[in-house]
Structures are given as C-alpha cells and as structure tokens.
Write a protein that binds this DNA or RNA. Structure first.
Lengths: 194, 194
DNA sequence: GGCATCTATTCAACAAATTGACTATGGAGG
DNA sequence: CCTCCATAGTCAATTTGTTGAATAGATGCC
C-alpha cells in the first residue's frame, strides 16, 4: 500500500535504478520497510506511469542497460503530502519470535542456535549502520549535523534502526541465558516428555 | 506464510474461537505477528481442514454460536518441528518511519503530532504488557518463574515487545527534540522554501 | 422505544507480496 | 577453460493480505 511512499522517499537520496533500490532496501530502508526486487521493479513502473517519477535510460557498453529514476515535482509534492497523513501502527513479522513463543513444545537447542544467528546478523547490521552514520555526519559532530543539515530524516530513521538492533542483541542474550538455564535443569536428552 | 504457526502458537494458550484470537492478535501476539480477523478465520478453516486443529461448536443461547479450536497432536508436532527451521529475518513496516525519512520535504508539524500520537500508543501498550506480565508471573518473582514454569515462550516474547515500545518512546522523544529545535530555527511559516 | 454497540462470524472482491524461473553479459577465481 | 558471481532486469503463478459489507441476537443508553 505504501511501498509507494517508501520508494519515493528512497529516491530523495537521488537518481537510482531498480537494482540500486533493491540494495538500499536491503540496508538502510529495511529498518522500516522491506521489499523484494520484484516488488520494486513493479512499483517503479507504476510510479513512472502516473508521473511521480521519471525514467532515464542509460545505455551501457559492458552491462545491461539500466533505467535511472528521479522524483518529479509531482512526486515530491505527493510524498510531502503523505507526511501529513495519519500513519497506521507498526506491523512486525518475525518468525524467530513465533518460534520462541512455541519454544516450550519445540526444539530449544535449535532455537538457541537461531537466536545466536540472529544476534550475529544484528551485529553485522549495526556495523553497516555505523558506517552509514559516519558517512552522513561527514566529519561534523551529531549536534552540528542535526542543526545544520537539510535532511535529518535519514539520520533519525537510522537511529531507530540502530536501537532496534541493539535491543535485539540485549534481548537475545537474555533469551540465551534463560534457555541455557533450563537446558541445564532438563534431564539430558529428555526434551520430549510431553 | 507462517501466519499458520503464529495461530498454532497462540492456541498453545488453550482453546480459542476466531474472535478470541482476533483479540489476542491485537495485544500480545501483535508484537511479532499482525493479522486481521478475516485472515484468522480463513487460516483457522484451513488448519482445521488439514487436521492441525480441531473445532468444537459451542451453542450459545444469547449469543451467536462459536467454534472453539484446539491444537491436535499433529498440530503440536508440526509447531514443534517449525521451531527447528531457520527463521527468515524480521520484516518491519512502519509508515511513521517512512514519513520521518521524508520529513525534510514534508510537513514537520504534522509529523511531530504523529510522533506524539505514536508515543501515546506505546505507553498504552506498555501498560497492557505490564498487566499481562503480572498475570503470567502470578505472584512469583521473575527468576523463580523462569526457572519453574512449563512455558517461558510467552514471557520471552512479551519482554521483546516491551523493550520495543520502550525504545519507541525514547526514540520518539529524541525525534521531537530535534524537530522542535529545527522548527525554532526555521523562519516562521516558511516551510516551503524548496 | 429505538439506535448504537458487542459478540461471533461469513462472503466477495480486490490489492499486494512471494516464489521461482528466465534472459544477458562480463569479470574473477580456480 | 569453465564456473560462479554481480549487474540489470522481466514474466507468470500462486499465496497472502486488505476492505467493506452482511447477518443476527442481546444488552446498554438516552
């Protein structure tokens, strides 16, 4: 429904191809909106049709041609108008949490491994966020940046993404502790005593 | 795709009607999986067809009849097996974050109001979580509960939900500060100087 | 006395998302 | 030399998710 606005917002960073956006939607934008490449290509076609973005075909010699998209004034206006609407509440879907909800009838060791994997992923994400943050700050300190820059939006959403992953780490650690405690108390090899 | 498992996991709490589940999916389960009532009814029909849950019709005198669903041994087994799979990464969609990403070309005052509304919502959620937590603990302290109880899953997911909302509050506060700072620096009424 | 609201669902239509395969080319590594 | 990976997409089928309305009795509110 509003992949539309997520795409328009991503194009505020400047001209991008579908392929570029797919990468952006995998790193920074993924904090608050996830989308597959196929979704993006389709959405880009639609947005170009209604004139909210414009395509420019770049012929490449040693690569497939690409279409670079830019916001049109109409697109920018519509995105601006969107910010005045009333946002619907956050929708989260996290299979790991479903697994944990069911861990008591499931496989605690497998779940522990999944939690550890997720924590590894969060650490990697945090490292990427930090690199992006330093790139945004570009030498200034945070207070100066926030007061001066024309675009605070990306920084603020980045902060939310960062704290989300930090919470994942803290919580994951706690889950591991609890599950390990219970694994120790459990009779060895007797997980199926329903 | 795995609304299926979210429903099975919710039924671990015991027999429930579609209507009951709709309420549960609006409070505790919403932390990690959201679904509309219609989705739930459809999923319940499907799960009953393949024998993972069983329906029992309860005729009520002064109310419409209801179907109460229970996990079958098959359902419990399939849910247990699911916990051993590899979870896909978290998918978040949050329109408010999209708006903030675009706040620099949008309406900062409207966005501020939306952030405040979201914070109010988070506070309400935290209050409900706390009530649920006390009900789960049922007088015991946390350490005892975690060591003793047969079901830690719901407590662990609740903790994640709680820290998520707490982070929303902290982050929201920061966003308000930054936006107010910039509103003060902005020439009055001159938001459209693109 | 009537209208709104809550319980408890069902149906239909539509929009969006997911999956998987397919087309091409070039560079890197073994 | 051959295979894998990255670039840059497209197409089609299926599954999910969303929206809106309909049904139907009971209780509460003015």
């Amino acid at each position: 429904m509003s992949l539309k606005y997520a795409v328009l917002a991503a194009l505020l960073e400047g001209e991008a191809s579908g392929y570029d956006l797919a990468k952006v939607f995998d790193v920074s934008v993924a904090n608050f909106w996830s989308a597959t490449p196929q979704q993006l290509y389709r959405e880009l076609d639609r947005l170009a049709e209604v004139g909210l973005i414009e395509a420019r075909v770049v012929e490449q010699l040693r690569r497939p041609n690409k279409r670079l998209f830019t916001l049109t004034p109409d697109g920018r206006r519509e995105l601006g108008a969107f910010t005045a609407e009333s946002p619907r509440p956050t929708a989260i879907r996290d299979e790991l949490l479903v697994m944990i909800q069911a861990v008591d009838v499931g496989d605690p060791d497998a779940v522990r491994a999944s939690v550890e994997e997720r924590m590894e992923w969060s650490r990697a994400r945090l490292a990427r966020y930090e690199r992006l943050r330093l790139r945004l700050l570009d030498g200034r300190d945070e207070a100066d940046f926030l007061a001066e820059t024309g675009r605070v939006g990306p920084y603020l959403t980045l902060m939310r993404g960062r704290s989300f992953e930090e919470e994942n780490l803290r919580w994951g650690q706690r889950v591991l502790e609890v599950l390990e405690l219970r694994a120790a108390a459990r009779p060895v090899g007797g997980g199926d005593a329903a």
